[in-house]
Amino acid sequence: MAQENDIVLIYFEDNPLMFARIEDISPDVKRDWYHVKLLLLQIPLQVVTWILRDVYINGEEFTMNGKKMRMEEVICPEQPEIPEPSQEEEEAPKNSGDAKVISLTNRKKN
């Protein structure tokens, strides 16, 4: 289940619409319903509070004004593993001699 400070992607009619950060989840008076305060990550920033069932916070589809909506927790992708340089690459000179260094401090303004 998405929790406070998690980033979610909000889908509108099966199309990704916007990202939001969950600011607060507090129980509603009805059992299994919650007030979910969202910071919509758009310009300008906007804060909204939706009353959702626990299954909707978990990603199940719901409707809002007759339109299909869904929230999906965003998981940070794994960083690709960077291969270690081989012995030959480490010994190879970094500057092939064709490169030219240009000093920007000596340039005059026109």
Rank of each mutant, 00 (worst) to 15 (best):
A2Y: 00
Q3T: 06
E4M: 14
E4A: 06
N5D: 11
N5I: 12
V8S: 10
L9I: 14
I10P: 08
Y11V: 01
F12L: 08
F12K: 13
F12D: 07
D14F: 11
F19P: 10
E23W: 12
P27M: 00
D28I: 09
D28N: 01
K30H: 11
K30N: 14
D32S: 03
W33D: 04
H35N: 09
L38N: 00
L38F: 08
L41Y: 02
I43Q: 13
L45G: 09
Q46F: 03
V48G: 03
I51A: 05
L52E: 07
V55S: 12
I57T: 06
N58P: 04
N58R: 14
F62A: 00
T63E: 06
T63R: 15
M64T: 15
M64C: 05
N65V: 14
K67L: 01
K67D: 05
K68S: 13
R70L: 00
R70S: 04
E72Q: 12
E72W: 00
E72I: 12
C76S: 13
C76T: 10
C76V: 11
E78M: 06
E78H: 11
E78V: 15
E81F: 10
I82Q: 09
I82H: 07
P83H: 04
E84C: 10
E84K: 13
E89T: 12
